[in-house]
Design a protein around this nucleic acid. Structure first.
Lengths: 342, 342
DNA sequence: TTGAAAGCGCTAACAG
DNA sequence: CTGTTAGCGCTTTCAA
């Protein structure tokens, strides 16, 4: 079932059929109706490969996974983000092409991807403060949007980020407001832009409260329960242990809760905890209205939808200056905080 | 930079250049070397769209995400599986096309995807015991491999699954061997094939030990910490509470641990727990050699690699009877079990 | 309002 | 061993 066979069975030329189907003007109402009816009846679907070759548009967006990755797709944040983006793409007729980028020559990988013509745009995730991929992609002329930011990148580029600094400052302020002065930060991996911003927010709020940031209370690790557990164990064992914890993910918080309880303390009474939470469907912070932890919550799925929309519009209007969007995290009160330090 | 311009700059015909580049025979050694050198020098990369149209192969594999999904990509199991599969695809020059399937007319969605020519094969995840998608895809003639099985599907089809029944029977047997007689099963969502098989393994091992399965001790829910927590709370409150727990995921186990500890019991002493663990990089069961929980462990990433290989070979040799592969879970001893019931 | 013709960039018979 | 010739299925000028 090709455009041509369909045209023949209608006694029309492929041209007319194509125009009728693609909603171009200059086709008689009646002809268009006939064509559409026949197409539906025969179950005709245009071949995207051919269409793509003819139009030059791939109708697909690239998302990249580093091959070695423990931080990308495997982190449910990215999966939820992609799921959200996928909804937007699907509505616009775009597919997602997931590219597994071999380790090593990253630049060449991106270049190949751009040249390949398989995708019309790229969504970049997990940027570092001085991420080279941004200059690279800008140079390649492939439209892209970054999920997160590269804080040290001077040139303008499109991004959508959560206000990490503000969320962590707010959480810290909440804790200083309760009288806490030793507030540990169990952050994500060092070198990630979001972790840098979170640390900055924490430090700023401490300084604001007249507290000198204590490097011994700030940790950077992959965001797993085990890390939260071991870090909190060590911290509870300090001569002057923290009275409050700020954690970068629910899993870290789970680990902290465990260590704290093993140390004979109770969360929300002896020790306070605020965590960041990406609102993951797979890792819910309790049930709605009944959170497990006090948290700053980001709508990751929604962010995926929105980033995708930004990218699609960048593709549709090349030349436009890139847009940026900063999302505010919500504040969710749970039982894990509220207590003044003992 | 097209094949033609490259050919012109070499003074050869596009045909020869194409053959030289694609490793066909019938090209002089020297010509081939010259062509390859020039291609590299000019940074030539063939246009996959054109190649795809000419060959009829898309060089891409489809993975489907239901639009409503809380069970698919958002579950890190699927993400890790896809990451593994992606490695295999990448090595063979294939991309992953992630299709977000709108809710509702699923069948039509798959049909469209098959007709679209965007993909050469499909990897199906999260099957139900009587999953209609299998007959549908078989009818469409699109090669596919199922991650998991549809137990009630009679016709042969390719699949790769973990031996859920056996893993859960083994875990249960381990617990009955310790003398436990009230062994709760906190399973995954009802209706998923894997959950059905896990329940069957649990029941079989109980029966084998002369214990009548107690429906009150078997639960089905999404695999979150909250579920593990609430279910275990209820179970610890029973007149005759379970002395051991078998859980379908690490997050459930985390919830159980919490409920159990809140009830004043200690895991591994007062109460035993064995969990299933998919070996996720994002949700590690402790660190290697130091697990948090005793577990049956499946190598999900590796399964992804292998399923992808099966699919690629099904694509390469159409007509071959479909292959199937059953993966054994490993047994990992942790501190959460080992105790006889009190 | 419709159709003919010329590609999009590549592969694959078929000759030479 | 190399080149000529047709397509793959669709879009898109340009004429009619």
């Amino acid at each position: 079932m090709t455009l041509r066979t369909l045209a023949e069975s209608l006694g029309l030329s492929p041209t007319t059929v194509s125009r009728a189907l693609n909603g171009y003007g200059d086709v008689a109402q009646e002809t268009r109706a006939r064509v559409q009816a026949e197409a539906r009846a025969q179950g005709y679907a245009p071949n995207p490969r051919a269409r793509s070759l003819a139009t030059g548009r791939a109708m697909a967006i690239g998302h990249v996974i580093p091959a070695d990755s423990r931080h990308e797709i495997v982190n449910p944040v990215f999966a939820d983000f992609i799921a959200g983006a996928g909804e937007t793409y699907a509505a616009a007729g775009y597919e997602i092409v997931l590219s597994v980028m071999p380790e090593g020559d990253e630049a060449e990988g991106y270049r190949r991807l751009a040249r390949s013509g398989r995708i019309d745009g790229l969504l970049l995730q997990a940027p570092r403060p001085a991420d080279r991929r941004i200059a690279l992609l800008a140079g390649l002329g492939l439209p892209f949007v970054v999920h997160g930011r590269a804080s040290e990148e001077a040139a303008p580029y499109g991004w959508l980020d959560m206000d990490n600094r503000r969320a962590f400052a707010r959480a810290t302020r909440h804790l200083t407001g309760l009288g806490h002065r030793r507030i540990a930060l169990l952050n994500g991996p060092e070198g990630m832009d979001f972790a840098t911003r979170r640390a900055a927010g924490h430090a700023a709020a401490l300084t604001e409260a007249g507290i000198a940031p204590d490097p011994a209370l700030v940790r950077h690790e992959p965001m797993t329960e085990f890390y939260g557990y071991t870090a909190a164990r060590e911290l509870t064992g300090l001569a002057a242990p923290p009275t409050a914890y700020l954690t970068s993910s629910l899993l870290i918080a789970v680990g902290v809760r465990r260590a704290v309880e093993e140390a004979g303390l109770r969360l929300g009474r002896d020790v306070s905890l605020v965590t960041h939470d990406d609102g993951l469907s797979y890792l819910p912070n309790g049930t709605p209205g009944r959170p497990l932890f006090t948290a700053t919550q980001a709508p990751v799925r929604e962010m995926g939808r929105e980033a995708a929309a930004m990218l699609l519009s960048a593709i549709a209007e090349p030349g436009r200056p890139p847009r940026t969007r900063l999302i505010e995290a919500e504040w969710v009160e749970g039982p894990s905080t509220g207590a003044a330090p003992r």
